[in-house]
């Protein structure tokens, strides 16, 4: 359709077609405004002073541009009695994010490699169970896991939340790499075996270096998913490691007295900054992640 239309033409658009184009742009424009509205409100409010916020004109631009709310959100916003700002949550999220992303991707790649190139009996049944597990609500797993971590003494610690992210990231990471490796020529693997390379040699010297594109997709998916996680961080991370999303919710929903909306909105924007940056920078890769993680095996 798009190709057929792209030839240059001298023909004037008909009345009908002109109104069609206007309709298309009107529809897209109105919806774009709807989608952008929350981001706009957050941004303008975060740059206002509380006096201005009390005027209650959420759509107006700030009269006096101020970054006080941002500074406060980052350094001294309160969750209950502690007033240390979101920087704590940010640090925690980074501490959780880095090992979780690296380990879950490495394991996903290893699983995908073993599943698509090696004959392991029962592996496909295992993989099927894993996939099925990814459809089950977390609530089914949470309590037994809590008990298990408590027994081993790591409940409410960094290892507990990292292991949890690895567990729940495994289905989609394994699927992602397995599908990608299934598309690589099997001859490559055969040639390496004839050259005498073993399981690990083939994995590290041949397969991993070829996995860069899918690894980028995996990083995008895991960074977004783990950063945006709320439930697992709330349950497993423990008081000292609460991720940014949990802290944000605490800041916003546990304040007593007058709510500092400008600070809250600055905090919200700050919390979204990492995934938003990943999204804006990654562009089409982001979509590829959504699609390849989910479309058939």
């Amino acid at each position: 359709m798009s190709q057929a239309k792209s030839a240059t033409t001298k023909r004037p658009l008909t009345y009908h077609e002109v109104w069609g184009r206007v309709g298309i742009y009107a529809f897209l424009g109105v919806l774009a405004l709807f989608f952008l509205l929350p981001l706009y409100v957050m941004l303008v409010t975060s740059f206002k002073s509380m006096d201005e916020v009390r005027l209650g004109l959420i759509f107006s631009l700030p009269q006096q541009f101020s970054i006080d709310a941002w500074v406060k959100a980052w350094t001294s916003a309160c969750t209950g009695l502690e007033c240390t700002g979101l920087q704590v949550g940010f640090g925690n999220s980074v501490k959780i994010l880095v090992p979780s992303v690296v380990l879950s991707i490495l394991l996903g790649a290893l699983n995908g490699y073993a599943l698509s190139f090696w004959k392991v009996r029962g592996a496909n049944v295992l993989f099927a169970c894993l996939l099925l597990g990814s459809f089950v609500p977390y609530q089914v797993f949470i309590y037994p896991l809590v008990r298990f971590y408590a027994k081993t003494g790591i409940y409410g610690s960094l290892p507990a939340i990292v292991i949890t992210h690895i567990i729940f990231g495994m289905p989609v990471m394994t699927l992602l790499f397995r599908n990608y490796y299934s598309g690589l020529p099997l001859e490559l693997f055969k040639a390496a075996r004839i050259d005498g390379a073993g399981f690990w040699k083939i994995f590290f010297s041949i397969i991993l270096p070829m996995s860069v594109p899918i690894a980028i997709v995996a990083v995008i998916m895991q960074v977004t998913a783990i950063w945006n996680d709320f439930l697992l961080g709330l349950v497993f991370a423990g008081r000292d490691n609460l991720p940014m999303t949990v802290q944000l919710n605490n800041i916003v929903n546990t304040t007593t007295g007058e709510r500092a909306y400008n600070v809250n909105m600055a905090a919200t924007v700050l919390t979204s900054l990492v995934p938003l940056t990943v999204y804006l920078v990654s562009g089409r890769w982001f979509v590829r992640g959504i699609a390849s993680g989910a479309v058939k095996g």
Partner: peptide
């Protein structure tokens, strides 16, 4: 257009909930 329509999906549900809570909040 594509970027605008998909960006909310990159944000956490917590953020989505908070933003709309404010916009729909009758006092604000």
């Amino acid at each position: 257009f594509r970027t605008v329509f998909l960006y909310p999906y990159a944000m956490s549900f917590v953020v989505a909930g908070l933003i709309w809570q404010w916009i729909l909040n009758p006092d604000l």
